[in-house]
């Protein structure tokens, strides 16, 4: 069973203390929302988890393997994959080539035909299979988000971090992303979902982590977190408790 253990993570950028002893654990195929105001430290936490930056102190273990000092490619191979807040597709490579990159990087001994077959199945699921030979730069913003999600399916990590997957996406494509999350989670993978779209977060997630200026101020089931005075004060706002579920628009502001 997937286990991610984050213990006492601290990160400073000069005088700015961005993460202050953040600790949490993920056991099994959990679907966790990571929320917090801008500047809360969500992206920094994600960058530490995927090895892009190193913490000043603290540890991260993935299935008992310490990963906080590993380079990003080894973290990916160890089983942690992510998308980026701003889509980072390989723009001057075809859609299929984008999917080939993680599959070949893993080097699991699959033939090119097998990889191509899986890639086409992934593209079909994401409803962009007709674009397979187009350069990624020809895709719309939403389609590029789907492509990024497709690359993660090819990487097939144990833990998936989705950074703002719904931002700027057409409702029809959002349905595809919802199905994607259900598929990945249903396949036994843990998902950390970062989003300012509270509707989606409360609909999908069964556990919420709330960061506020580097502090993990809440960790619990959505109903409890929604009522947490510290969370209301820091992020959801005073009206949130009353409106109960209509928070999406406010939270984005």
């Amino acid at each position: 069973m997937t286990n991610l253990a984050v213990k006492g993570l601290n990160k400073r950028f000069g005088g700015l203390h961005v993460l202050k002893g953040v600790s949490f654990e993920i056991d099994g195929p959990e679907l966790i929302g990571l929320i917090g105001p801008n500047g809360a430290g969500k992206t920094t936490l994600t960058n530490i988890l995927d090895g892009a930056i190193k913490p000043n102190s603290g540890t991260v273990y993935l299935n008992k393997q310490r990963i906080d000092q590993l380079p990003p490619y080894e973290v990916a191979r160890a089983g942690l994959g992510r998308t980026f807040q701003v889509t980072r597709s390989f723009r001057r490579m075809t859609v299929l080539e984008n999917l080939f990159v993680p599959a070949l990087a893993l080097n699991r001994g699959h033939s090119r035909e097998e990889i191509a077959q899986k890639a086409l199945e992934v593209l079909e699921f994401l409803t962009i299979d007709h674009l397979r030979n187009e350069y990624a730069q020809a895709l719309s913003g939403g389609q590029q988000k789907l492509l990024e999600l497709g690359r993660l399916l090819m990487l097939d990590p144990e833990i998936v971090i989705l950074d703002e997957p719904f931002a700027g996406v057409h409702p029809r494509l959002m349905e595809v992303i919802y199905r994607y999350i259900e598929r990945v989670n249903g396949a036994g993978k843990a998902i950390i979902l970062i989003s300012h779209q509270m509707d989606s977060i409360f609909t999908l997630c069964r556990r919420l982590l709330v960061l506020n200026y580097g502090d993990l101020i809440a960790d619990g089931i959505p109903d409890d977190v929604k009522r947490d005075p510290a969370v209301i004060e820091a992020y959801l706002g005073a009206d949130e408790e009353e409106s109960n579920g209509e928070q999406g628009g406010r939270a984005q502001s």
């Binding site: 995927d50 892009a52 490619y73 994959g81 390989f90 001057r92 490579m93 990159v101 070949l104 990087a105």
Partner: peptide, 25 residues
């Protein structure tokens, strides 16, 4: 070969390539 694919990924976005398991170094 995959070398060509990986170096092009490197050109496009080094960090994204690394996050997908490519040993960019």
């Amino acid at each position: 070969s995959k070398f060509g694919l990986f170096v092009r990924a490197l050109r496009e976005d080094q960090d994204a390539a690394a996050a997908l398991g490519v040993n960019t170094t």
